[in-house]
């Protein structure tokens, strides 16, 4: 049971991660000395006593080595040695940059955890938008008048002719991207598969005995659709929507990579990969880890979708074919 719930646990932990890894840890400390540190490098942070409580943040030194020298301390900072008297040093602690630092000295792990919420939330929300629009269009198409069906299906075919990424890029250029706009743009360009599936499902259910029974009891058409047809398509539609969560995360990251991301100060994974591009040869870790995070999260989402499919006892589209 625990193993089955594991993907959900990891996913919710990632959503909560910014609470644990707070804004403080994203802020660079002593950029001159902490920039472009490789993964697993450990440094010592020295807080200096300046007598001014306000300026404490600025007076932290990042040093490689620290040793006693007589009364005071001597340290090695980026290949240069320096000394410090005992009373100047307020406290010291070790810090390990597990995944290295970027060019302004921000901890890559902290950035990743910070970006997790943006990526996952945009993925979930845009899949929810797609589920809503897809169910509405599919329901109208399957249960509505024939001309509406013909019209909607041709419209759907036309939308399906666009590569999703190209359509998303066009819309992102037209509408200034904000997190909400990205959710809407990605959601409104990915509902077609769900609509087609809901329509097929509704067309099949329309002929079933329980719908006939409801009709015989005098239920109106609208009531049959809303209370009997659509709820029965919800399971398969939900599973199809879990596929879209992964796709949405990938599309959002491509959008951020191309510089049309959700904006704001939250560092998204796609933007981190783009930022690391300039330092690819010197500092591979800046681009490498966010990409791994994207891949891992998408796989995790697929895992969750598979689990939900097996709980609902629906054929698993995650193992297509």
């Amino acid at each position: 049971m625990l193993r089955r719930a594991l993907p959900f646990g990891v996913l919710s932990l990632l959503l909560l991660a910014p609470l644990v890894y707070d804004r403080e840890s994203v802020r660079p400390i002593d950029p001159a000395a902490s920039a472009l540190r490789p993964p697993l490098s450990t440094v010592t942070l020295l807080r200096l006593d300046t007598g001014d409580a306000e300026a404490d943040g600025d007076r932290t030194l990042v040093v490689d080595e620290l040793s006693r020298q007589g009364d005071g301390w001597s340290f090695l900072r980026r290949g240069e040695t320096g000394t410090l008297s005992a009373e100047d040093l307020r406290d010291r602690r070790q810090r390990t940059y597990w995944l290295g630092t970027d060019r302004v000295g921000r901890d890559v792990l902290a950035l990743l955890l910070h970006g997790a919420r943006t990526s996952i939330a945009i993925g979930l929300l845009s899949a929810a938008v797609a589920l809503l629009v897809g169910s509405a269009v599919g329901g109208l198409s399957g249960a509505g008048p024939r001309w509406a069906d013909a019209l909607l299906m041709r419209l759907l075919d036309a939308l399906l002719a666009f590569p999703q990424l190209v359509l998303v890029l066009l819309l992102a250029v037209l509408f200034r991207p904000s997190p909400l706009a990205v959710v809407l743009i990605v959601g409104l360009t990915s509902w077609m598969g769900i609509a087609r599936m809901v329509r097929a499902e509704v067309l099949q259910l329309r002929r079933s005995a329980f719908v006939l029974a409801a009709r015989a009891l005098g239920a109106t058409h609208l009531r049959v659709v809303l209370r009997h047809l659509l709820p029965n398509t919800l399971g398969p539609a939900l599973i199809a929507a879990t596929l879209l969560v992964g796709d949405a995360i990938l599309v959002e990251s491509a959008l951020s990579f191309l510089g049309l991301g959700s904006g704001g100060e939250a560092p998204t994974w796609g933007r981190l990969v783009a930022e690391g591009r300039g330092d690819l040869v010197r500092a591979w870790w800046i681009s490498a880890f966010p990409g791994l995070a994207i891949t891992g999260t998408v796989l995790l989402v697929h895992r969750c979708g598979s689990r939900i499919a097996s709980w609902l006892d629906i054929a698993d589209p995650h193992l297509r074919g």
Binding site: S253, A254, V273, A288, T295, V298, L299, H302
Partner: peptide
Amino acid sequence: IVYSLPSFWIGLMAIL
């Protein structure tokens, strides 16, 4: 796994 790889990232890694 192949579907889950962002193509911009795997491209950068291949370049690297």
